[in-house]
């Protein structure tokens, strides 16, 4: 058993001319609950489909549970964004299909428990279900095969707050009881805050931030001070001047001078600052120091004076 659930190295996928994902490198340790965050069209779905073995990469490699996605297929659960299910089957038939396709792994009791939580009639046709009920059935299919890695693309998008809370609870129990690594994407940061301990921020097909959320927050500081103040060698992600006041989100490279009032940013501030400033250097933990990774951040403009963009954030 490997301690890495998901690892990408210079992973890239192109659809016709457009790169949906490019030069994507990160490592997700096993047992984490990872949020894949980014605006619509950032490449989140592409990344998850690549990890699920539904798409072939153009460049680089993706390693899933220590092997290639095709070999890991039986041990990976995946729920696509639009929760595809056979509309003509009933809920019971859909779950029976899962049992047929996953002999030896299928946990029928878990499937029924998750489906039953939504007051679902087992004889109801899938096409007659509401969005939330569909999500429930899709999650039941993915969870009952007892995956070691669960990939969820916008799982909570069409759920009401109550169902969202409840299903998130189901997922957290799964993660806690079985040590399942969960990767879920969303464009709403607040949806994932509190449930996730790892973050992968994708913007414009590239990894912008990757790492443990606590480490990422600790690596950044929110500062405010006089507009003419100098931020020295610190990496500036975003800075704004209002009158004579300057506020900035920085990655300190050393002790701050006393001119600045410092505070810890929230996760949402961190994400938004990086998305608003595409030129800000990426922060991804390097596994092996390689020259390929230093090119991934495009240090240009006012964003950074230093080249120290690939910093080690985790011990």
């Amino acid at each position: 058993m490997t301690d890495t659930a998901l690892e990408a190295a210079a992973l890239g996928k192109r659809f016709r001319r457009r790169w949906a994902l490019r030069d994507c490198t990160f490592r997700l340790p096993a047992g984490r609950v990872c949020a894949v965050v980014g605006p619509n069209g950032a490449g989140k779905s592409t990344l998850l489909a690549l990890a699920a073995g539904l798409l072939a990469p153009e460049d680089g490699t993706v390693t899933v549970l220590g092997t290639d996605p095709a070999s890991a297929r039986a041990r990976v659960g995946y729920v696509a964004q639009d929760k595809p299910l056979y509309p003509q089957l009933t809920v019971a038939e859909t779950l029976r299909t899962g049992a047929d396709l996953n002999p030896g792994r299928w946990d029928a009791a878990a499937a029924e428990r998750i489906a039953a939580g939504g007051d679902l009639d087992p004889k109801a046709r899938v096409r007659s279900l509401s969005g939330g009920q569909r999500t429930r059935v899709a999650l039941a299919l993915a969870l009952a095969k007892r995956p070691e890695l669960l990939l969820l693309d916008e799982p909570m998008a069409d759920l009401d707050p109550l169902a969202r809370h409840e299903l998130m609870g189901v997922l957290m129990v799964q993660a806690a009881q079985h040590g399942t690594t969960i990767v879920m994407s969303s464009h709403v940061v607040a949806e994932l805050e509190g449930s996730c301990d790892h973050l992968l921020l994708i913007g414009d097909g590239r990894v912008r931030l990757a790492g443990e959320i606590d480490d990422l927050l600790a690596a950044h500081t929110r500062v405010s001070g006089p507009a003419q103040g100098s931020l020295g060698d610190h990496t500036v992600v975003e800075s704004r001047t209002t009158g004579r006041q300057l506020t900035a989100l920085i990655r300190p490279t050393g002790p701050l001078s006393d001119d600045w009032r410092a505070s810890m940013p929230t996760l949402e501030e961190l994400v938004l600052a990086h998305l608003r400033n595409p030129d800000a250097p990426a922060l991804t933990p390097t596994q092996t120091p390689s020259p390929a990774e230093s090119g991934s951040g495009a240090a240009s403009g006012s964003a950074s004076g230093s080249e120290s963009e690939s910093e080690e954030t985790r011990a």
């Binding site: 073995g53 539904l54 039986a74 995946y78 639009d82 595809p84 299910l85």
Partner: peptide, 14 residues
């Protein structure tokens, strides 16, 4: 078109 092929592929059959 509806993604049910991908559903089958993620249910363990290549």
């Amino acid at each position: 078109e509806h993604g049910t092929a991908q559903l089958a592929w993620s249910q363990g059959i290549s």
